[in-house]
Nucleic acid binder design. Structure first.
Lengths: 240, 240
DNA sequence: CAGAAAATATAACGAACGCTCGATATTATT
DNA sequence: AATAATATCGAGCGTTCGTTATATTTTCTG
């Protein structure tokens, strides 16, 4: 039983990785189509290939030295595209930042709503939401770290979207917890603060990944631990 | 009883604030004395006054736009000191960053070791450590936020110190938890991961302060909540 | 109050930044 | 194969950066 569950979880996570990587190209295609009026490149195949390159390279450099410290000459050198070529895909460095932010938010919403089924019992939803969130941030760690660290460098409008996005996922946990209380699965005095600390625990995974990989903690075992930790607080009686 | 406790906690926090503000000048004095060979200013009274100004202004600007995005001309304008005057207090922008990091680490260690008594029972230590950490980060929020956000822009040596500092406080929680298990006050399966999520919950307070102040959650009530949350996991039987 | 010492102000330096644009290379169409 | 359309290139623009050398003002001392 234990083994079976572990195997199925591993498979689940690998599926997850595959799905996310496939989503990447798909999303770059969406971005290209939606911003075709801004992007100077005509051919989709060329644009998508280079956009993937640009986003991936930007995340890599930014997670080392920060987006502001990444010069466009750095990006040009590492990506292999010239300065001029880069500026065929975005009009300014700030626009590049905004495109990346949008890309990640879109994937997050898509995946979360696909994997958490509102018809399930709250306890199942809670587990699914936490595990999905962790797996997602594991697979897309560079983006989440980037997004968190660069949030304050965004313009007014974009920052508003980032805050909104944070509160939306938190609200999802509040809903699940409240629903669980109503259905007598959970005992939660303060769903809002409980949801806040859930988010804090989930975020630690991508903010401090150096700590966990140094200790050889896998994302699956961290997920098991955090879910168990939370359930020992909110579950009325785990066995009955 | 409830009221009495609330009052005493409020007083405790006010004491805390006063202590921290007083420590600030004290620490600037220490920094001046230790770096007198680097700092071009001779008179202590002048140096301490301006160092406080420089640190305070730097934290303020950096928490809005980031340290790298703060130009020294910004710092000059806001602090009221000229470029030349600034360079009498540090030899480079990076040295300024390092001085601020050292200042904060020093206060953290000083306060934590002063308020957590190794002779107390683990359950008392645990509460004291969590509450102290939260109060400290509340009073020195600008520094902690700054320190967290700018950690990756440090040099090799300084980054090592920052990582070490993170792990030291976490190790303190591991010690308290393990000690509590040995003395049969706590039941904790994995003290290391438990300490990690404790840190995550504590850190959320200064990383997301906008969220909590928007919801009008005070640091005292957040401390009460987090302590209660944790105790419901680790305490064998809260009443007996 | 004169003169020395200390602290601050000013202006300029080279380097690096984001960004642009005419020239060049690549690909598609006839 | 020739032409047109598309994509890439990289030197150079103006600006701002961190930093410094020098001049000026303030403060202390006898």
């Amino acid at each position: 039983m234990q083994d079976l569950q572990t195997v199925s979880e591993t498979e689940e996570f690998d599926d997850f990785r595959q799905m996310a990587l496939l989503s990447m190209e798909e999303i770059c295609r969406d971005i290209f189509r939606e911003n075709q009026h801004r992007i100077k490149i005509k051919k989709e195949s060329v644009a998508v290939r280079n956009l993937e390159n640009i986003f991936h390279t930007t995340l890599g450099i930014s997670n080392e030295k920060g987006f502001q410290n990444m010069s466009l000459r750095d990006l040009s050198r590492v990506s292999g595209l010239s300065m001029g070529a880069l500026y065929s895909y975005f009009a300014s460095k700030e626009e590049l930042l905004e495109m990346i932010q949008n890309q990640g938010r879109r994937i997050t919403l898509k995946v979360l709503s696909r994997r958490v089924n509102p018809g399930d019992p709250p306890s199942v939803q809670l587990r699914a939401a936490m595990r999905t969130h962790l797996y997602l941030t594991e697979v897309m760690q560079p983006w989440f770290y980037f997004s968190y660290m660069e949030a304050k460098n965004l313009g007014r409008e974009q920052r508003k979207k980032a805050i909104e996005s944070e509160l939306v996922t938190e609200e999802m946990f509040v809903q699940i917890l409240s629903d669980g209380v109503k259905k007598r699965e959970f005992v939660v005095e303060n769903p809002t603060l409980t949801a806040a600390v859930i988010k804090a625990m989930l975020q630690d995974w991508y903010l401090k990944r150096w700590k966990y990989s140094r200790r050889q903690v896998s994302v699956q075992s961290y997920a098991d631990f955090v879910i168990g930790f939370l359930e020992s607080v909110v579950c009325k009686s785990p066995e009955s």
